[in-house]
Design a protein around this nucleic acid. Structure first.
Lengths: 192, 192
DNA sequence: AGTAGAATCGGACTGCGGGTCCGTTTCGAT
DNA sequence: ATCGAAACGGACCCGCAGTCCGATTCTACT
């Protein structure tokens, strides 16, 4: 990410901001109450620096997200089954959803903040398209689902949206394994 | 809604505000850019009046929503099949989802505004609980779905969330009937 | 009809957060 | 050591939800 010719104070500050934001978002219950000024202060940096490095609030959230999701992305793209590309679709679909659910449980605040961001619908984010098309092409390889795969992929992703996960896990107190089990059961039903 | 002893100017202003808000939300593409000041101005009323009548932005949105959804609510509660209580669950579930999808298509801006409202997750709204428990109890009457009905109801409702509907219908240009068809196909699959 | 006083009105005002601006500081190439 | 360029940082601006309180309008009572 850091360009070859970037001044080292810029690099240092970028890291400081990422670390501070990372900590702040996980700590607070409601991500909306973490302000940009807070992040800048916690990182020991001015607001100007913060905004120059990440553009806007959404840019910061995105950078955090990409950093955290990287391992999963890698595994999906070139790793072993059940996530990697060599997995039969029937196993890969539930595995993908399971991994994403685990990610959202592990990164609830961040995922929430990312999907909330008022004006920007989560469906317009670049990474949504990625996950959707991956899931969709997996679904297309399963006989009997090829016709409605587009919509089915949307619904399966909607089943693990950050605010739903937060509601069930955080508000309703549904335990982790229970959520995984319910999602697996539902997915199995859809895949018939 | 207006208490027996409410001054008539208050009643008049309340109606004016509702009418103005109704029009404004439907007109603008992005509901976030309709400000409370706009609504007050369009209604020919001061901001103080607006806030006294509805509490806050969310209160206004809710009042609008309840006004518009009332016919559906009535039909569901005491109307004829396929929405009313005498409908066999197997037909009622898809009918409910279809009606809600139609509602969201017809009231896109409003539904969006209602589900966005930053800090307040849609899952904490009173009406979500209502629809969820209705759908869930219908699902429970279908053999083979009784175990996972809770989660299944959440997912089916997630399939018609306002921002997803807006994304598909508005951004991707999926026509109405196509959306209804896709939802019906998916639901049929889930109900097996 | 007239009047008192309570409820409502309305727009100036506050608080707050995202985002910008620009004088000052730091970097690194020569 | 020097100089131009890039980065810094915090004062500043802007827009919006929500509040406050003096002015206004309604209604109950005579």
């Amino acid at each position: 990410m850091p360009e070859p010719s970037t001044r080292k104070d810029a690099v240092r500050n970028r890291k400081a901001v990422l670390a501070a934001a990372d900590a702040l978002f996980d700590r607070s219950g409601n991500p909306e109450e973490v302000t940009m000024a807070d992040v800048a202060a916690a990182a020991g940096v001015g607001k100007g620096t913060l905004f120059r490095a990440f553009g806007d609030r959404n840019g910061l959230l995105l950078a955090l997200y990409e950093h955290r999701i990287e391992p999963i992305r890698q595994t999906v793209q070139a790793g072993p089954p059940p996530l990697g590309p060599d997995t039969p679709a029937r196993e890969r679909v539930p595995a993908l959803l399971d991994a994403l659910l685990r990610f959202k449980l592990d990164n609830r605040r961040l995922a929430l903040a990312l999907e909330e961001t008022g004006s920007t619908s989560p469906y317009l984010a670049a990474h949504y398209e990625d996950w959707h098309s991956l899931l969709r092409s997996a679904l297309e390889q399963i006989p009997g689902l090829t016709d409605n795969s587009e919509f089915t992929a949307h619904v399966l992703l909607a089943a693990i949206r950050a605010d739903l996960v937060e509601y069930l896990a955080g508000h309703k107190g549904v335990p982790r394994e229970e959520m995984h089990a319910q999602l697996a059961r539902f997915t199995a039903g859809v895949l018939r």
